[in-house]
C-alpha cells in the first residue's frame, strides 16, 4: 500500500516555478529518500503534502486521503521536522513539547522524557536560550512524540553534531522498524545512502527519476578510470551512455551505463598504463543529474 501518492503536483508562486508535475509514491514501511540541490523544490513538495501551501494543480494523497481536503485528519499520524526550527521563544522546552502533545489523542507523555534523555536535551531551559542544535532536538522530539505513522524529515541533520546525527538515525530506524514510513529529504547523499531504500531525485522543480538506491549504484553505472601513456583522444569515448567525462593530465574518468562490451571494443588498440572499473558513489551518479542540461 502507498502511504504517500503524489500525482502531477504543480506549484507556481505567481510566475515563479516551485515544482512542476511532481509524481511519485512512497510505500508503507519504507524509508524514502528525497534528494536534490538547494531550491530544487523539496520543501515545496513537502509543504504541499502538509497543506501548508496549496498546489496550483495536481494532487497528493496521504493514507489514501487528499492532503488538502483531509489535512487535519491526516496530520494526526504525521510527524514533521522542518529544516529550520523556531518555537515560541518565551516558553520552556517542556511547555512547548506539552503544547505539541496536547494536539494528539492518547499521547504517552513519558515519551517526552525518554526522548529528551536519548537526545540529551534539558527540558527546563527556555527556547530562546537554546543553541541551534538544541532547538533542532526540540524539533525532533516534537516530531516523534506522538509515534506517527508517517515521519516527514526536511533536511533534518543540519546543526546536529555527528554523534547526535547517529543517535537521530538510530531513532529513525527504530521508528521505521516499528512500522513508521519515512520521507527523508536531503541534499546530503551519504546520509540518504545510509538510510534509504528508494530515492526520488528532484531538479529544477521536476522529478528526474525514482530509483532503488542499490540498483542505482550497482546495476546501472560503472566508473572508469583510464591512465594513458601518451596523448589521449577524448572524443574516442564520446559515445552513448558515457557521462561525467573528465580529463586529468593523462588520466580519463567517466561513468558508463549500458552494454559493457561497447567500452571493451573501444579499448582495443589503446595503450594504457592502468585501468580501474569501480562502483560509482551516489555522489558521482548524482552529479550527473545535476549537471545535465545546465
Amino acid at each position: 500500500m502507498n502511504v504517500i501518492e503524489i500525482n502531477q503536483l504543480t506549484k507556481f508562486y505567481g510566475k515563479h516555478r516551485g515544482i512542476e508535475n511532481v509524481t511519485f509514491s512512497v510505500e508503507e514501511g519504507e524509508i524514502f529518500g528525497f534528494i536534490g540541490p538547494n531550491g530544487a523544490g523539496k520543501s515545496t513538495t513537502i509543504r504541499a503534502l502538509l497543506s501548508l501551501i496549496h498546489p496550483t494543480s495536481g494532487s497528493a494523497t496521504i493514507f489514501g486521503k487528499d492532503c488538502i481536503k483531509y489535512g487535519s485528519e491526516i496530520r494526526r499520524d504525521i510527524g514533521y521536522l522542518p529544516s529550520e526550527v523556531f518555537y515560541y521563544e518565551h516558553m520552556k522546552v517542556r511547555e512547548v513539547l506539552n503544547y505539541s502533545a496536547s494536539f494528539y489523542d492518547n499521547v504517552n507523555y513519558s515519551r517526552i522524557q525518554s526522548l529528551a534523555e536519548i537526545m540529551d536535551l534539558d527540558l527546563n531551559k527556555r527556547i530562546d536560550d537554546l543553541s541551534y542544535g538544541n532547538k533542532k532536538k526540540v524539533g525532533i522530539i516534537q516530531g516523534l512524540l506522538h509515534e506517527p505513522k508517517l515521519i516527514i524529515l526536511d533536511e533534518p541533520t543540519g546543526g546536529l553534531d555527528p554523534l547526535m546525527q547517529q543517535k537521530f538515525f538510530d531513532l529513525i530506524r527504530e521508528e521505521n522498524e516499528k512500522g513508521a514510513t519515512i520521507l527523508f529529504s536531503s541534499h546530503i547523499l551519504s546520509e540518504v545512502q545510509k538510510l534509504c531504500g528508494r530515492v526520488a531525485i528532484i531538479k529544477d522543480g521536476t522529478i528526474v527519476r525514482v530509483e532503488n538506491i542499490r540498483d542505482m549504484q550497482k546495476h546501472n553505472y560503472k566508473k572508469f578510470t583510464l591512465e594513458y601513456k601518451g596523448v589521449i583522444d577524448v572524443h574516442h569515448f564520446n559515445l552513448e551512455g558515457v557521462t561525467n567525462l573528465t580529463l586529468d593530465k593523462n588520466t580519463l574518468h567517466f561513468l558508463f551505463k549500458g552494454d559493457i562490451n561497447r567500452i571493451v571494443e573501444r579499448l582495443q588498440g589503446q595503450s594504457l598504463l592502468n585501468m580501474l572499473v569501480e562502483e560509482p558513489s551516489l555522489e558521482e551518479i548524482f552529479m550527473h543529474y545535476y549537471q545535465k542540461e545546465d
Binding site: 487535519s72 496530520r75 514533521y80 522542518p82 523556531f86 518555537y87 505539541s100
Partner: peptide
C-alpha cells in the same frame, strides 16, 4: 512572524479551528 507556523499548522487541527 515568529516562524512557528511550521509547528502549529502541521498539527492535526484544521486551519478554521
Amino acid at each position: 512572524r515568529e516562524k512557528t507556523a511550521d509547528f502549529l499548522f502541521v498539527k492535526p487541527v484544521s486551519r478554521n479551528r
